[in-house]
Amino acid sequence: MKLPVDPVENLVTLIRCPSVTPAEGGALAALEAMVKPLGMSVDRPVFDEPGEASVENLYARFGSEGPHLMFAGHTDVVPAGDEAAWSHPPFGGVIDNGILYGRGAVDMKGGIACFVAAVARYVEKHGAPKGSISLLITGDEEGPAVNGTVKLLQWAAERGETWDASIVGEPTCPQALGDMIKIGRRGSLSGRVTVSGRQGHVAYPHLADNPVRGLLSLAEALLNPALDSGTEQFPATNLEITSIDVGNPATNVIPAKASFAFNIRFNDLWNAERLKAEIELRLRAAAEDKRFRSGREEPVQFELKWVGNVSPVFLTHDEKLINTLSASIEAVTGRTPELSTTGGTSDARFIKDYCPVVEFGLVGQTMHMVDERVAVADLEELTRIYLRFLEDWFG
Rank of each mutant, 00 (worst) to 15 (best):
A33L: 07
V106I: 12
E338S: 12
V8K: 00
G51E: 02
F389E: 05
D318H: 08
G66H: 12
P312N: 11
E124P: 15
G295V: 00
T341V: 06
G334I: 09
A208L: 01
L153D: 09
G230C: 06
S340Y: 05
N210M: 07
N252Y: 13
V313E: 06
A272L: 03
V313K: 01
L362K: 05
R198D: 00
S294V: 14
M180H: 08
A33S: 12
F115L: 14
L379G: 06
F62H: 09
R335N: 13
A272K: 13
E303T: 13
V77R: 04
P90L: 12
A33M: 05
T251V: 15
N271S: 08
V195N: 11
V253F: 11
L58R: 03
Y386L: 07
T237W: 07
E372V: 07
L153P: 09
I264E: 07
E288R: 15
G187K: 09
F115Q: 10
A113E: 03
S294A: 14
G81W: 11
S259I: 13
G308P: 08
Q233G: 09
H317K: 14
T366L: 05
A219M: 13
T333F: 09
P235K: 08
L3C: 01
V119E: 01
G247Y: 05
S64R: 14
E83L: 11
L38V: 02
L275R: 10
Y204W: 11
E381G: 07
R44Y: 04
A105D: 04
P249Q: 12
G25H: 04
Y122R: 07
V150F: 00
G184W: 09
D392L: 13
A113W: 01
E124G: 15
E24D: 10
V106M: 08
V374K: 01
A236P: 11
V12M: 08
V20Q: 08
V202M: 03
P7F: 01
L153S: 07
E65H: 11
G200S: 02
S294H: 11
G73D: 02
